[in-house]
Amino acid sequence: MSGAEQGDAFDAITVYNFCEKISEQTIHFHVMKMNGGFFLWVGASPTLSNLAVSMISKFDSVPLSMLLMGDKSETAPNALAQRLAKKTNKQVFVSYNLPMVNTNLALQVEDRIKKEMGNHPEHF
């Protein structure tokens, strides 16, 4: 995954933002689309508290995933990255900056992301 990997044609990285009011708070989404994958940040305040990366593998039906930054006991960033990697077949970076105890919120957030992916696939 290093920069030395042979790349395809250069596709410039593009940035896309959207937000949604979920459970009475405005959740912000920030997407950076890159060659073969995307970076997705989710949060209600502008912090970067964790970062997970995930990609599909031909050896396992569950996408490979790793937490690059943040508290290792939190599973939400990895879980979200894995599900998005599976859905898109791309390399996915996720930073999830919302209370992890609220699984209902996490589900709503994930649905909102999937809805945006359906409506604007060109941004992911």
Binding site: G7, V15, M32, N35, G37, L48
Partner: peptide, 29 residues
Amino acid sequence: VRTQVICTEFSNYIFIVLTQYGKIGTLVS
């Protein structure tokens, strides 16, 4: 070589992507 930079500000981090491949590549803190 076509070179792209994207800088993003977070309250606790500055996130920079510097790329000649259109991807994140090696991630360093």
